[in-house]
Simulated scan of single mutants.
Amino acid sequence: MNGQARPITLVGTPVLHRPCKPVETFDDALAELAEDMFASMYAAEGVGLAANQIGVDLRVFVYDCPDADGERRRGVVANPTLVLPDLADRRLDSDDEGCLSVPGARGTLARPDRATCHGFDVKGTPVTVEGTGLLARCLQHETDHLDGRLYIDRLSTRARKKALRDYERLQEEATG
């Protein structure tokens, strides 16, 4: 792993709250960005990271997390398109969720227990990632980031306020 860990962008930073631009060039610069994203994700002890979480306005994310069977899956997806099961086939998994861009805060969020993500790798080759369990949650979470949405935006008003209070309290403790 040759990437360089970059600082994680925190909630409130504009790049996190708007849709990212599509990746149009699949070159060495994109491959280097992906390596930096992996390094940043590992340094922060995460399982997924979107480019805007390190301040880059591009539709690309990395992941390294297990699926429902415990199989560790790792990859890069540029310009992802998320496909969720039809409503009749959808089973929700309600679980605790957090985010590297909202450190210290967590909230219970129901998401479909399966997700498929279509996109491209760093060379522009089409990829499809089928996720179950934590990987399904990760694919949804990271695609949300690229659409300018954080997991806290999906919480109830009360749960969102609590998560932001927890985040602010931990930020004050860290600086003060």
Rank of each mutant, 00 (worst) to 15 (best):
H145R: 01
L150I: 14
A34Q: 08
N52H: 14
P19N: 10
I152W: 02
R165P: 08
V76C: 03
V11N: 01
D64P: 07
P14Y: 02
A51S: 11
T132K: 04
L82E: 06
A159I: 00
S101H: 13
A43R: 05
A31R: 11
M37S: 13
V127K: 04
V60C: 09
A5E: 07
L134H: 04
D86T: 09
I54F: 06
V83G: 12
A105I: 04
H17K: 13
D95H: 12
N2F: 07
C99N: 02
A31G: 10
L139C: 04
H145E: 03
T157S: 13
G75T: 11
A39M: 01
A43D: 06
G131T: 03
V15T: 11
E172N: 15
L49T: 03
D144M: 02
Q140M: 07
G75Q: 08
L84S: 12
I8N: 03
P103L: 01
G75Y: 13
D147W: 02
L164D: 15
I8P: 10
A105V: 08
G104L: 02
L134Y: 02
P66T: 10
P85H: 06
D113A: 15
L82K: 12
R6F: 09
D28Y: 06
D147C: 03
A78D: 03
L82C: 04
T81W: 12
P7N: 05
A31M: 05
I152D: 02
V11Y: 09
R154W: 01
C138Y: 08
A105T: 04
G75E: 06
A115D: 03
G55M: 10
V56E: 14
E35Y: 02
D67C: 11
D147F: 01
D69W: 12
P19K: 12
R160S: 01
L150Q: 13
P126F: 04
Y167A: 11
K21I: 01
G70V: 15
L82A: 05
